[in-house]
Design a binder for these strands. Structure first.
Length: 763
DNA sequence: GTTCTAGAAC
DNA sequence: GTTCTAGAAC
């Protein structure tokens, strides 16, 4: 197949004539225009002429007309032209833009470096062609830059590349140096970090201009929207598709050229499928989670095939960073075997966070191979996506869910303030958690591929359903909005019942709930007569049903491997006999491994499936009473030894360790293991639920109230006795070691505190 | 849950 | 410069 590409490229290349281009450089004196041209002219395979107004008159400064004349004659000879003058104002460049024609594209390369840098370079340089150097340069540069007007595509450029730092310039140099005579580059604005001008999306225009391959046997020359796809048209070219500072080495770019996916579809030229939303997704679990690539590729293809009928005008794209990617080639081969429509599903090489800006592929939805905590960090795709999104994604994610169980996905609408939204056009990120085969990571399946396969299948199902629900919700919003305008009813299109948010494959109820919300959103949008854009935007803030999803997810909390220790003890107490104080029928008692006070025990239930307070129901009432009784007995034994101690028995609202456990803890908090705010607040705020209260609640309401644990744990540090505030843990501890104030009255009621009979605190 | 550590606070 | 916190990694 790969041979096909090269053959096709060659054939196409031989047929085509080289097209000269005009590159209008823009930049203040000292921005490096001349250096840029000289470098490219020296190292490019394409014939170039540099038209420099400073030297055009036999080495002396000439006129604009001379520049234009020289440029025209160079173009006639088939040479490409650099216009090397400042061109900072629109007026100054308009005549040069007119050099363009259907045969001659006009590019802009903007060397938009900091003013200070340009000034200092101009002042320091010697031997400048135009003699703009030394003291006078500073004033000139400053004045020129005040009039700067950044170029827009509407002036007539087919592409504009902004360079705002040295690394941008290097990338641009690389690109134009390797830009062979037969190559073309995608149209549009690239590399602008502080958009003064609106980025114009020239990509669709570009895509539609690409001719369908004359060789019906291969679609290699029509790879969708990829700069690389165009560049492979010439076999010997080594130009990459990178637009800005690149992490891709030249070797990598050559690989893009040589192994780009033949199964990749082009945007349809009849227009039928060219405008649908695209989901870009990484291969789930095959990187850090070490899932077998062959098995994973089977699942991807199987799940994609299942989704085919539902895709409508949307597309799925499997993305990986390198074309050496084993998973991409496996999936390509298997998708081809199964005759999966390459217009609906294809593989793509690129950075999933820069698909539009660097590869010209606009994907409104991207999937993230998330961790169970839904936190940034780690490596790979997760780190890249969170980095590229700025803090917005983290905040938006928190609104949707706190964690994920393997096999599920959560849809997060991306705020438009996120760079990933503004630069790449991404409207949603779908976090997906796949199965883990890496013993170094949580929830390792220890090679159990029966489970692993099921989980990965669920993960892709959740992902694709999530994507389709976004699409159908947006379609619905748009449709309803139109209805409002037209004031005419229309029939339901029968879209997915699934809501747009959380897509646990087992969550039928969730889906129903989300469906309701979807309806509500639509109603809102009718009522307020919003425009489509506004409606989608309010939907994108994701606040509408965030609450539902928090509930959904917290019920299925995933536990890290480190959080399983108590569970293992409870399931096999006999294996841990040496560390246990007592083994009873329903509970075991043990010392907390890191006691946060002089005396700190745990009473642990042996009941499987009872992980935390949230799981406790009425049927566990007797168990709770047993746990309390056992804890109380232990506390009383301690009090016999030391009557000055005071105990409290209770549960953490949300424990860090799995398996319901009752803390029996003395109230001195005199321990080297009590180190941080979280430790302190987990025992001294409402986060700590007194056993007596829990028993009452279960008995009366059937479940325990869970306090707003995140806020409670980050509250200021206050003495648990006198409630005075302290700036840090050491100061707090030195206070509490001496504080003898009576305990707050709330604690003295209802037997929340366990004291020796003769303790003066005893009411 | 702890450990480690970058960087904030002092 | 030292102390302390908070977040990531495990």
């Amino acid at each position: 197949m790969e041979m096909d590409i090269d053959d096709t490229c060659k054939a196409k290349g031989e047929e085509e004539k080289a097209k000269p281009i005009v590159v209008i450089l823009m930049g203040a004196p000292g921005s490096g225009k001349s250096t840029f041209c000289e470098h490219v002219v020296r190292s490019s395979a394409r014939p170039w002429v540099r038209v420099c107004q400073d030297t055009i008159n036999n080495g002396k400064a000439g006129t604009k007309v001379q520049c234009l004349t020289n440029a025209v004659s160079a173009l006639k000879e088939g040479k490409s032209v650099f216009i090397d003058r400042c061109n900072l104002e629109k007026e100054q460049r308009v005549d040069f833009v007119k050099l363009g024609s259907p045969q001659v594209e006009v590019h802009a390369v903007v060397l938009d470096l900091p003013t200070k840098l340009c000034i200092s370079r101009s002042v320091k340089r010697t031997g400048h062609e135009g003699n703009l150097q030394g003291g006078k340069a500073a004033a000139v540069v400053n004045r020129m830059l005040q009039k700067k007007e950044l170029p827009k595509l509407s002036e007539g450029f087919s592409r504009i590349l902004f360079c705002q730092n040295e690394s941008d310039i290097h990338a641009a140099l690389d690109m134009y140096s390797g830009f062979g005579p037969l190559d073309t580059l995608p149209h549009g604005c690239f590399g602008q970090k502080k958009p003064d001008t609106k980025v114009q999306l020239g990509i669709m225009k570009f895509l539609k201009k690409v001719e369908a391959p004359s060789n019906a046997g291969s679609s290699a020359s029509s790879i969708q929207g990829s700069a690389a796809s165009q560049i492979i048209e010439e076999k010997n070219s080594c130009c990459g598709g990178k637009e800005t500072a690149s992490s891709l080495t030249r070797t990598a770019r050559e690989e893009v050229k040589s192994c780009q996916d033949p199964g990749v579809s082009s945007i349809s030229h009849n227009g039928s499928s060219s405008d649908g939303p695209i989901l870009a997704f990484p291969s789930i679990s095959t990187a850090d989670f070490q899932f077998d690539h062959d098995k994973a590729s089977d699942i991807i293809v199987e799940k994609v095939e299942e989704s085919m009928d539902k895709l409508g005008n949307t597309k799925l794209v499997l993305v990986d960073l390198t074309c050496r990617s084993k998973i991409l080639s496996l999936v390509r081969a298997k998708a081809a075997q199964k005759n999966i429509n390459p217009k609906k599903f294809f593989t793509f090489v690129g950075d999933i966070t820069k698909l539009y800006s660097e590869r010209g592929l606009r994907c409104t939805v991207i999937a993230n191979a998330a961790n169970w905590r839904l936190k940034p960090g780690g490596g790979g795709v997760n780190a890249a996506i969170f980095n590229a999104s700025g803090p917005d994604l983290e905040v938006a994610t928190k609104e949707q869910a706190k964690s994920l169980v393997p096999g599920s996905a959560v849809v997060v609408p991306l705020p438009s303030t996120s760079p990933l939204s503004s630069k790449e056009g991404v409207t949603h990120v779908i976090h997906v958690l796949g199965p883990n085969m890496n013993p170094q990571r949580p929830n390792c399946l220890d090679g159990d591929y029966v489970k692993g396969r099921q989980i990965l299948q669920k993960a892709y199902t959740s992902l694709f359903e999530g994507f389709l629900s976004i699409v159908s919700t947006q379609a619905k919003l748009s449709q309803e909005s139109n209805e409002t305008i037209k004031l005419e009813p229309s029939k339901s299109q029968g879209h997915s019942k699934d809501g747009p948010r959380n897509h646990s494959p087992t969550g039928d109820q969730k889906n129903k709930r989300d469906g309701v919300h979807e309806h509500e959103i639509s109603k809102k949008c009718k009522g307020s007569q919003n425009e489509v854009g506004t409606s989608i935007n309010s939907f994108r803030t994701g606040k509408v049903n965030a609450e539902n999803n928090k509930l959904d997810v917290s019920t299925s909390k995933a536990w890290g491997s480190w959080a399983q220790a108590l569970y293992h003890i409870a399931m096999h107490p006999e294996r841990h006999k040496d560390n246990l104080l007592e083994i009873l029928d329903d509970v075991v008692v043990l010392d907390d491994l890191y006691p946060k006070a002089q005396k700190h025990l745990l009473v642990l239930t042996r009941c499987d499936g009872l992980d935390c307070l949230e799981d406790v129901r009425k049927e566990h009432l007797q168990l709770l009473k047993t746990m309390h009784a056992v804890g109380l007995k232990c506390a009383e034994e301690f009090l016999d030894e030391d009557a000055s101690l005071v105990f409290r028995l209770g549960y953490h609202s949300v424990p860090a360790m799995r398996q319901l456990h009752l803390h029996v803890i003395s109230q001195d908090f005199n321990s080297k293991h009590l180190k941080n705010k979280k430790h302190w607040n987990s025992f001294t705020t409402a986060f700590f639920r007194d056993s007596v209260d829990v028993i009452k609640e279960i008995s009366n309401q059937g479940k325990a109230t869970l306090k707003d644990y995140d806020n409670l744990l980050s509250m200021e540090l206050r003495c648990h006795r006198c409630r005075s505030a302290h700036p840090n843990i050491p100061r707090l501890k030195s206070h509490t070691s001496n504080c003898r104030a009576p305990f707050p009255t709330s604690l003295l009621q209802n037997d929340r505190l366990v004291l020796a009979p003769n303790n003066t605190n005893n009411p």
